[in-house]
Structure formats: structure tokens, C-alpha cells
Nucleic acid binder design. Structure first.
Lengths: 189, 189
DNA sequence: CACCTAACGCAAAATATTTGCTTTATTAGC
DNA sequence: GCTAATAAAGCAAATATTTTGCGTTAGGTG
């Protein structure tokens, strides 16, 4: 019922976890959220339902767990030579990913989870990326806002729009948020 | 399965809706989310479970519906004489409400709903309040940012923190967001 | 190698959800 | 007002899901 990544991660546990996660991802390509069920996933994964219930608690937590896994920063964000450029580049691909149907489902699944810790991991994920981009800028000698300010000025409005008002989660808006957040930001308006 | 506020709102429907909503609110004071169930609510409301399933679809949607109802702006936000003051005053009471346990459950229930429309209503709710506070400021002749900018500068970071990083959803932060959003904002830091 | 035990499988029991059909009560037309 | 039409509720049987107790398997440990 908690987020278990440990205790006894040896062979079998890991195998079951992978089988179940894989089954979910597989089924998600075919069926909508409404059509997914624990017994169905268990069957596809070659496991008993009780295994899933005991480990994840319920369908919502399992889906959130699977979604969160995708959030791992696989590759370094693209470099553009300036903080504004880096933010725009990373942000655009992130927006693109999250406004897509699978991206929206992913957000939905994570938000539906009762585990606060999961959402905090999303926070940390974004924070890590902001820190990375900022670090680059600092190394180049650019004047940069704090990571906190980047979170408030860029990540927060972007995420807010992704969750509450999808139509306004656009690259154009992103430029505005970036311009208003960076030091020399006398918005051209 | 959709958000039905119409079609046949006469006596009985309204009565059932009220009975069910009331039963939910009642039960929520005693039991945790995990302990709530549709049959239980139906029983308390004096209705059959199938009535609830047919009207709301499932527990998550029902809870979201009940939560959303609480979000109606009951009373005019307090007046303080300045936009910054109004934002701070309203924001503080909002933060207070949403960081409380019932407030967090409310947010949770709304976010768990599959109905995008529900989240959009949250957006409209905040937007209405921002428009109201801004209108006051305009009438006083204050220089004010657009409603959009208030949403991005104040509502977005506040909501973001409430959802993802509760510890940083504080009045002190709120002041910062307000200061950085309002025109004459040369943050004292 | 042998013991300990977390995690899984299995199957029965308990709950929750769906569904077909009937009944009730609101709405609309007369 | 009275009646026909029908949305929404009730009821109960049929399904499906979730929980639980207990036996089994297989990592981890000394």
C-alpha cells in the first residue's frame, strides 16, 4: 500500500513488478482507462490479482506507479546556449508530451494517486531539471534567477495550465513565462 | 456519468441529489476516503446503490462532485484598499482552507475525477475571483496586471505548491508571488 | 547448506458493480 | 385538473472485483 522499491527487491519481486508494469503499458495502448481492471492486468502479466492488490493496493495506485516511472529523466535536456533557449526547448517538448493523450492520462493517473509522495517526486523531477539548466547558465556566466523562481515562474504556470486549462498550455505562453521570469525580462508584449 | 445539473431537475431528482451529497458530507466527517463506499453512502442517503452508479458513475466522480460544490464563492472576498492587500487577504484564507485536511481531501477528490470539465470549473472559479479583485483595483485607479498575469503569477504557483509541495504553500511565499506579479514590484528580497 | 521469511499462488468469502425489468413521479399536452 | 409520455428511482439477480486465510516458493542470511 506504500511505495515499495525496496525490502526485498531480488529476482522474483523485480520480475513480477516488471511483468505487471509491462502488462499495464501493453493494455494501455489498446484500452481506455475505464476499460482497465486489476484482474485483466493480472491475467496478462501472468500473476494472481491478489498479488497486485497486496503490492499496490488498487488500480489507481498501480497506474500512478507506472506513470511515474516514465517520468525519469532519460536524457540530458537539449543545449541551446542560453537559459531562455534551454527553457524554451525543454518546455516545448515537455508541453508536447503532456498535451498528448497518453501524456494527459499520465498526469491524470498521477494526480489520482492518494500517495502524496508521488506528487512530490514530480516536483523533484522538475526541480532537478531546472537546477540543471540553471547550472549551465551559471557556468556560462549568465545572470539567472534562483531555482525557486524558475519553479514559480515557469514550471508552476505550465503545470497549472496542463492540469486546469489545456488550451492555454502552449509554446507561445511558455515564452511569456520565461521572459517574465528571467532577469532582463522587459517583456516586448 | 456526465455532470448533470439539468434534464429533469424537478423535485425528486433534486431531493435525491441533496440526500446523497448530504450523506457524503456527513460520512466524510467520520470516515477516511479509504473507508467510504457507494453502498454505504446509498444506505445513509436512503437510496439504492444503482441510483448512485447510474447518476454519478462511480465513487470518485461523486466525491469530486461534492467537493466542487463547496467551491462556490459564497461571500465577497475581503476589501483591504489595495490590490496587493486584497490578494494577500484572499490568498491567505484560501491557503488556510486548502492546507487543512478537509481542504486537501477536496483537492484530491477533484483531481481524481476523470471529468476535465470539473477542473476547468476550478480554473473559472479562481479567474472570477481574480477578475473581481482586479476590477476593484481598476476602479481605484491602481495600475494592475491582466487577469491572465494574476493567474500565472499568483494562482498558478499557489495551486502548484498546494498540489505538489504542501510545505511551501505559505503566506510568506504568497507575498513574494504577489510582489513579483504587481507592476511596481521591485522585490525587497 | 539450512533456516527464516517476504512475496506469491490459490480458492473461498465478502463486497461492490452492472443490468433488466418494474414502479414512481415529474413534465407536457390537452 | 387530467392523462399520456418518459426520466429517474427501486429492486433483485447476475457479474465482477476485492479481501482474506493458508499453503507454497524462492530470495536473503548466518
Amino acid at each position: 500500500m506504500a511505495i515499495k522499491e525496496a525490502v526485498r527487491p531480488g529476482g522474483r519481486s523485480a520480475r513480477v513488478q516488471e511483468a505487471v508494469h509491462h502488462a499495464v503499458r501493453e493494455l494501455q495502448t489498446t484500452k481506455s482507462r475505464e476499460e482497465l481492471s486489476v484482474p485483466q492486468i493480472a491475467n496478462k502479466a501472468g500473476v494472481t490479482p491478489s498479488t497486485i492488490y497486496r503490492r499496490w493496493g488498487n488500480l489507481a495506485e498501480l497506474l500512478a506507479d507506472v506513470s511515474l516511472e516514465r517520468l525519469r529523466p532519460d536524457d540530458e535536456p537539449p543545449q541551446t546556449g542560453s537559459l531562455a533557449g534551454d527553457l524554451q526547448a525543454w518546455g516545448e517538448q515537455y508541453l508536447d508530451e503532456m498535451t498528448s493523450l497518453p501524456g494527459q492520462c499520465m498526469l491524470s493517473d498521477i494526480m489520482a494517486s492518494a500517495e502524496r509522495e508521488r506528487r512530490e517526486r514530480c516536483y523533484l523531477y522538475s526541480e532537478t531539471i531546472m537546477a540543471c539548466l540553471r547550472e549551465r547558465a551559471v557556468k556560462r556566466g549568465e545572470a539567472t534567477p534562483s531555482v525557486e523562481d524558475l519553479m514559480d515562474g515557469v514550471i508552476a504556470p505550465m503545470t497549472y495550465r496542463l492540469l486546469y486549462d489545456l488550451d492555454t498550455a502552449t509554446p507561445a505562453r511558455l515564452s511569456r513565462w520565461i521572459a517574465q521570469t528571467l532577469p532582463s525580462a522587459d517583456a516586448p508584449d
